[in-house]
Design a protein around this nucleic acid. Sequence first.
DNA 1: CGGGCGGCCTGGAGGC
DNA 2: TGCCTCCAGGCCGCCC
Length: 266
Amino acid sequence: MPELPEIEVLRRSLEPHLVGDRVERVEVRNRALREPIDARALSRRAAGRDIATLRRRAKYLLIDLTGGQTVVVHLGMSGRLTLAPGGAPPEPHEHAVFHLRSGRKLRLRDPRRFGLLFALPTAGLAADPHFAHLGVEPLEPGFSGGVLAAAAAGRRGPVKPFLMDATVVVGVGNIYASEALHRAGVHPARSVARISAASRAVLRQAIEQGGTTLNDFADGEGRSGYFQVSLGVYDRAGEPCAACGTAVRRLVQAGRSTFYCPRCQR
DNA sequence: CGGGCGGCCTGGAGGC
DNA sequence: TGCCTCCAGGCCGCCC
């Protein structure tokens, strides 16, 4: 379950190895992902082009190629994107392989198939339906308390689903949301409309800190940072809150588990 | 219109 | 011990 910071770690770890190499050939072994891979379009756009830069938007990894084309990868729940020697045997659930001029291969495997893989002209990214509606990046300077305030204005409903709304701020998944609310001392069921400016500022900071903390801890093997950073509340129902010792509670919001400390979060 | 829920998918955990 | 059910997650589409 890669969250945004882990995609950023992945981007940084792959970039020095990929930039300057060339995609010779794209092999689609299993096109069944959340959206079926269009092997022909992917090949047409990517094959024979050099890798120029790696970027990230929300949880999408963007591989810019020369000639104005971009390969878009989303890891969904269980995706892994790894660089391997050309002779390495295929792995289970290997969906696609980018054969590189250097002889290595970049491969995508995704057992649960929640991921995405496609290519499109770089200039068309912003208007593409996958990207057009996305909100601000939580780890960039543009993410201020004011952004949350503006998005919250006139809105109803609990704050936790609000934080997970990608049109507001991208990359805040279920774990991330529970942890940020705990750090900020805000009850997940509290109405967005009733969050004070001070709480919003703390929340913004908690989201940002969660991101940077996880960045520091996630390793280059693509292992989740969440299992290396001790979680304050997530998946800890009945266990003591790290801050005050009160038993952590679980509730379901919008069909998703939320964990919180009834004492620290009001 | 905007909030919220179902469904996609499979590995792993838990129950009997 | 082994099977079977159930649940997790990101994200879109549809419902109310």
